[in-house]
């Protein structure tokens, strides 16, 4: 960039008086200046911290000495770390899968009913996505309360429970996934509904004439037509779910015994609350590989579509 800018300055320098003015009036210069605030923001508060995290991860706890990969090897030797890896993957994969399935089913039901009522249902079903996650997780926390759980009150007459929703490892893992599915499924529903609307009606008519069952219609018409949206929504959601913080932080804080921690909450526990910034940075860096893979696929998808248009 600087080279080109310098070049243009030299080119127009012949006319000394208005050289700078002309340069400032060039289309590319104006455009660059218009994008400058964006560039400054991205470089100073996103790109630089991201790179800085890698450097931080190689310092000792007091941040006085360069220790190379010692933080990484230290983590590898800790049992809690592997539990967090396992829990993060379990959390992200299960939650994204259920969000996709529930979103797909609900989108179909909404699509099935007369279009007059669709708006109303869609509006109602998107509410979990609109409420700030920290706030809605609070209501789940109260629904899961150890001694006053409203769910347990309902289950009690059936002879079930009391269920330790957030008190026992298995149930607590189930609960954080449930809340995540609850918040995220409406997003899938909206995306799939938009995709369903774009499938040409003639395809279904043709399939009906050929005697296709409803299952064959979904498998051979709907799914292939929606493949793109399904993939991109699932990838987006994988990134967001994998990096999730709010739900686990509010619902369990990683308890019982650190078994519900995901990378983000554990990094917070170690880095901010435990005052070990380098180790916290190291933990959060373990999110990068999966995020990078998802990002590459999304990008490929988007550029592919861009060239098609």
């Amino acid at each position: 960039m600087a080279n080109i800018a310098a070049g243009t300055v030299r080119d127009v320098a012949g006319d000394n008086r208005s050289g700078l003015t002309k340069f400032m009036q060039r289309k590319s210069t104006i455009a660059f200046l218009m994008a400058l605030p964006l560039l400054v923001l991205i470089f100073s508060l996103v790109a630089y911290p991201a790179g800085y995290a890698v450097y931080l991860a190689m310092l000792n706890k007091g941040m006085t000495r360069f220790v190379g990969f010692a933080n990484f090897t230290f983590l590898f030797s800790r049992e809690t770390f592997w539990m967090v890896v396992w829990q993060s993957c379990l959390f992200a994969i299960t939650a994204v899968m259920f969000k996709a399935i529930i979103g797909f089913i609900v989108a179909h039901f909404v699509h099935n009913i007369p279009s007059k009522g669709q708006r109303k249902w869609r509006g109602m079903l998107l509410v979990p996505w609109v409420i700030p996650p920290a706030m809605s997780t609070l209501s789940w926390l109260w629904l899961f309360d150890p001694s006053y759980s409203a769910f347990n009150w309902l289950l009690q007459p059936l002879g079930i429970g009391p269920i330790p929703w957030i008190g026992e490892t298995g149930w607590a893992r189930f609960s954080v996934i449930l809340v995540n599915v609850w918040i995220g499924a409406p997003f899938f529903m909206i995306m799939y509904l938009a995709a369903l609307k774009s499938v040409p009606e003639q395809l279904y008519e043709a399939a009906a004439i050929d005697g296709a069952t409803w299952w064959q219609r979904i498998w051979f018409v709907t799914l292939p037509m929606m493949r793109n949206i399904i993939a991109i929504t699932a990838l987006f959601s994988t990134i967001v779910t994998f990096a999730n913080f709010d739900i686990v932080r509010v619902l369990t804080k990683g308890d019982p015994l650190n078994t519900t921690h995901v990378f983000a909450t554990w990094a917070f526990r170690i880095g901010i609350e435990g005052n070990d910034i380098p180790l916290g940075a190291t933990v959060s860096l373990f999110m990068v590989p999966i995020l990078a893979v998802a990002a590459v696929f999304i990008l490929r998808d988007i550029t592919k579509r861009g060239s098609e248009v």
Binding site: I30, P49, I277
Partner: peptide, 29 residues
């Protein structure tokens, strides 16, 4: 107003959107 690197920058902006805040809060701290 296409300028040098504007297409790359557009993709870069999108990539930035994919970087979660949970990765950045410790270095920012």
């Amino acid at each position: 107003m296409k300028f040098w690197g504007s297409a790359t920058l557009a993709t870069g902006v999108f990539l930035t959107y994919l970087i979660p805040e949970t990765l950045l809060f410790i270095p920012l701290f």
